[in-house]
């Protein structure tokens, strides 16, 4: 499968599922944080369980990767600033009621302020790139 076309298709499926389940709703995300509505937490928990089960099945295959190369699971190291970074991310998540995936779904649905959240995410990534010039440990 062509990787770019494949990711375009899986992206459509991802965005469709996020939108249908309501993950692009400000109220649903914020509702989870203020203890009002835990639907989104259950979506995430279900996704983790299904993802875990799927990975176990995949590892049983004689060819876990279609191309025949060995399965290479990416591990994200915990670095010195990972935890403060996670807290910064969380604060932004609670303010905007969106994350890097769901904001794209908001934009697709026509939510104008989603565009501002998305522009902010690009800006935040740019700020990281600037900081990284002088702080390689970030």
């Amino acid at each position: 499968m062509n990787k770019k076309l494949g990711f375009l298709g899986f992206g459509v499926l991802f965005g469709f599922a996020l939108s249908r389940v309501g993950a692009s709703e400000y109220d649903l995300i914020v509702g989870m944080f203020i203890g009002q509505d835990y639907k989104l937490a259950w979506v995430i928990v279900t996704a983790i369980i299904v993802g875990f089960a799927g990975m176990q099945v995949l590892k049983k295959f004689s060819r876990p990767v279609a191309s025949g190369e060995p399965l290479k699971i990416s591990y994200k190291e915990l670095k010195r600033w990972s935890i403060p970074g996670a807290a910064i991310f969380g604060i932004g998540w609670g303010i905007s009621g969106a994350c890097p995936g769901t904001v794209l779904t908001q934009v697709g649905e026509g939510k104008i302020y989603g565009l501002f959240t998305m522009a902010g995410m690009i800006c935040g990534t740019y700020i990281y790139a600037r900081l990284k010039e002088s702080r390689p440990d970030l």
Binding site: I83, G92, A98, P100, F116, G120, M121, I122, G124
Partner: peptide, 15 residues
């Protein structure tokens, strides 16, 4: 929303 997004973008890269 722009400020919220900026924190997400920066935090995601650091994390």
């Amino acid at each position: 929303f722009f400020v919220g997004g900026s924190l997400i973008g920066l935090g995601a890269r650091i994390a």
